[in-house]
Design a protein around this nucleic acid. Structure first.
Lengths: 110, 110
DNA sequence: TTGATAGTGAAGCTTATGCTTCACTATTTC
DNA sequence: GAAATAGTGAAGCATAAGCTTCACTATCAA
């Protein structure tokens, strides 16, 4: 599927438990592809596929030195996520305010 | 797929753009299944399926009165999401602190 | 009571997703 | 240089996800 917008990609990336497990791991310390694969009990290839997705939405950054690729968490993607929540919270709050206004209006019933 | 934990379900639910579109709609005001279907250009059935998922992870609450089901946003699910981010941020911060400690240590090189 | 309206349930279709295997390329290390 | 190590790429596979259609139920309205 074509994932256009960044919000879209971040949520899609985080929708998978294995990818969140990778982040759980990286949040403690950077690590290599092989170590991730060992910890998760999946192949190197599978990890590589997840990493690609995580990199595309700026949740992870990787760097290859020699033959070993080191992965670390990147907070850019998380910011997108937080912004989304903030936006929704503010709309939600505004709606509650409107509701409060209505309720606060003088009782016009007879 | 069996979705066990609530974090798991919330992220999975939010991973789909149509479901986020539903929330975008509901954050402004509660609405009915039919209206949602019209706005999204999909069938009532499809909306019903999405609603079930959104309800299961406490992102939406619905109530059927007569023959019409009214859907409204529910913030319980969002709390799970925010908590997850907070947890990761704090771990991330701790890691940066450790790094800072290391960097702050008196230079022992000769 | 007849007809329209609002939604539900089951089945099936198509595409996406997560994973594996196998072959292959770089790097180290002995 | 030979053997081990770290990772990549292409192909394929099973399952899941998102939809639709069609048949059906429940409610409201004339």
């Amino acid at each position: 599927m074509k994932r256009g917008h960044s919000v879209d990609r971040v949520f899609h990336a985080l929708g998978d438990p294995t990818r969140r497990a990778i982040l759980d791991r990286l949040v403690h310390a950077p690590t290599t592809v092989t170590r991730l694969a060992e910890g998760l009990g999946i192949t190197l290839t599978a990890v590589g596929q997840h990493l690609q997705i995580l990199e595309e939405c700026a949740l992870v950054r990787t760097e290859k030195l020699g033959r070993v690729r080191t992965c670390s968490i990147q907070y850019l993607g998380f910011d997108v996520l937080e912004q989304w929540i903030r936006d929704h919270r503010s709309l939600w709050a505004r709606r509650l305010d409107r509701l409060a206004d209505v309720l606060a209006e003088p009782d016009e019933r007879k």
